[in-house]
Design a protein around this nucleic acid. Structure first.
Lengths: 248, 248
DNA sequence: ACTCAGCGCTTACGGTATATACAGTTGCGG
DNA sequence: CCGCAACTGTATATACCGTAAGCGCTGAGT
């Protein structure tokens, strides 16, 4: 606990202090000089945890399994990471590379924001556990997270919107990508088909209770693939933002 | 396991069958005749779990605590609920009452959809753990969930959009409410202030790395309360949908 | 050469979900 | 009315989980 730098009052034993977690995320760790060489680093641990999560899902990322990957005991990890929550933060940060160069996507705010959304979408697709990981509290935000945020806000600057509005638009886009990734992560291919089968059976049984839903399923609204969910949602939102811009 | 109805092949011991979970959600449980009267029901258990989650958060809902509330042992719950995942499903279903009467909100698709979103928002505010609960997989959807879905789809019918488009719009709105609730749940009042303090300190240190973000914070974009996040996002999305309707 | 910070390990505790076996209770069929 | 079968709740046990505490070894700075 708080073995960093100075003695520290150490008033409340529990309650990890944010500064420690932040220092971790920002890589501001001064490496020791005295003892034996550390065999691990927080970054390497996070990396291993990421490959584990990619392969088997976040729920099977445990201190034990991660440590076993290095051939060390679980407790060894605590020399590098204060706890599991911080490890997950590091995983998130590890998976977020530098944000892409949006200026390559075009000159207007709209193509840039769209590119931003697609890139973020790609990250969620590559690492589905990111959703669960960022759903857990803390949200300290490492440099990579801030960089993504900065990129989106920068793309919005030429719109002429107020900074408050730009912030809201950012939240809107980020949330849209996130929630859509979530919805699609739940419904993988054949599970979707199975769900449709069971649901339609239920709907038949409770025939007139859900008229609109029954009709939608009969129309194939749930199985149609002609509309890309991300692009559809994005187009609607950006159209709406355009309306706001035009009104100003 | 699978003590229901018929002997059942029982091929794979693990892997709860969906039908059982669905029967639970839809209340299609035939009550037994032979043994002692059951002191509990799945619904009452879910109800107790809900009040526990409301009070102390979802992470402190454990079989033990819920059972203790009834003065029974943890294992007793397994007579009524196959496992914890199913219990959470029941909690979700319990918290979703019948959807509101949207026709009271006005005659157009827009006020009705807006009313739908605000009601959903209210549910998230009343039961913040819903976010975490629905983030966990399974998504079997009980009658209440389907009813909400039906209400939103019904509101969209007079738009003249295709059923596929209506479905996408529904996903868009639902996702928006959800992700916004999430974002606001993370940032409670003073935690937000603390975050701003630490982040601005970091930004000072890495002065020129995040120019747009730095400016946004300086402008107070993150602390301003003049824009209601839900209404702002909703207005943008609905404007975008209006554009789509007008184009058709 | 000595010291001691830092590393990795072992052990232990309290928590979780849940499988299994058992004892008590109830109602139906004979 | 009796006994069996179904059903209840409980006790016990397993296999995890995160992590607190303390021990012995390593190896660089003095």
């Amino acid at each position: 606990m708080a073995r960093a730098a100075k003695p520290r009052e150490n008033k409340d034993k529990k309650a990890r202090d944010l500064p420690t977690g932040i220092a971790l995320l920002w890589g501001e760790q001064d490496q020791p000089a005295r003892g034996p060489k550390p065999r691990l680093t927080p970054q390497r641990i996070a990396e291993a945890a990421v490959t584990l999560a990619d392969a088997e899902g976040l729920e099977s990322v445990s201190m034990n399994k991660v440590a076993a990957g290095f051939g060390v005991s679980a407790m060894a990890l605590y020399r590098y990471v204060p706890g599991k929550a911080e490890l997950v933060e590091l995983m998130v940060e590890a998976v977020l590379a530098e944000p892409p160069d949006l200026s390559a996507a075009g000159s207007g705010w709209r193509p840039r924001l769209s590119a931003w959304a697609h890139c973020q979408w790609g990250v969620y697709q590559a690492h589905p556990w990111l959703l669960a990981a960022t759903a857990m509290r803390r949200q300290i935000m490492g440099p990579h997270q801030l960089a993504w945020m900065d990129a989106a806000l920068a793309a919005l600057e030429p719109t002429g919107l107020t900074s408050g509005q730009r912030h809201q638009v950012f939240l809107l886009i980020a949330g849209q990508v996130r929630s859509l990734a979530q919805q699609l992560a739940d419904f993988d291919e054949d599970h979707n088909r199975e769900w449709g089968r069971l649901t339609s059976e239920l709907l038949n049984r409770h025939s007139n209770r859900f008229p609109a839903l029954t009709k939608a399923i009969a129309d194939g609204a749930f199985t149609s693939t002609e509309l890309d969910p991300l692009d559809f949602g994005l187009d609607r939102i950006l159209d709406g933002v355009q309306v706001l811009i035009d009104r100003a």
